[in-house]
């Protein structure tokens, strides 16, 4: 019962957040979020509520090359493994993982960093040395998705990571960068 109520609550919050960023200018993709919008986004990425953190990190139209100011807050989120109902991240989440797969703020942040692009590479490479295995794994994934040659040597080192899930993700990333 409690978990269903929580899911409902998560869904409602997710919808609200999605709505907040679905203003015509932003969703048309012509206008990038203003510095003021971006500072509100960064504040919400640090919200104590994981649903808010995921919902904001998932807002697709916010994170592009001009949202580099959000990189530090997103990098901090990479180690955040609190599972949230997938509805919060609706559109693209359901498409790839199906309804039952929970999503974490760390995964959502990794995708946002990929959307920001090239400026995320160096902070992600640094995260490969994070003490948190979850953060290292999410960073390895993002580096594979970013398809940037600068990540090759650091990812080769991650093939010797003490955590198996990081090693697997690094192997995947090296294959994703090739060709």
């Amino acid at each position: 019962m409690a978990s269903i109520a929580l899911r409902r609550l998560g869904f409602a919050a997710g919808c609200l957040i999605a709505l907040a960023f679905a203003t015509p200018e932003v969703s048309a993709g012509r206008q990038t979020p203003s510095a003021k919008d971006l500072s509100a986004v960064i504040e919400m990425l640090r919200s104590p509520d994981p649903v808010v953190r995921v919902g904001v990190a998932c807002a697709r139209n916010v994170f592009n090359a001009s949202a580099a100011a959000a990189i530090p807050a997103l990098v901090e989120l990479l180690e955040d493994a609190e599972p949230v109902a997938p509805e919060v991240c609706r559109e693209d989440h359901r498409h790839w993982w199906g309804e039952e797969h929970a999503i974490t703020p760390g995964e959502a942040a990794a995708r946002a960093l990929v959307h920001i692009g090239s400026a995320s590479v160096e902070p992600l490479v640094k995260t490969l040395a994070s003490p948190a295995a979850v953060a290292r794994r999410n960073a390895a994934w993002a580096l594979g998705a970013l398809d940037d040659q600068r990540a090759v040597t650091p990812l080769i080192s991650s093939l010797k990571d003490r955590d198996a899930s990081v090693r697997a993700q690094a192997a995947w990333a090296l294959g994703a960068i090739a060709n």
Binding site: A164, S165, A168, W172, G175, N179
Partner: peptide, 18 residues
């Protein structure tokens, strides 16, 4: 690697690299 998932992903990556 001692972990099967690592070995699977490594084989996949080598297939991509060709």
């Amino acid at each position: 690697d001692s972990d099967a998932e690592v070995r699977r992903q490594a084989a996949w990556a080598l297939g991509r690299i060709r």
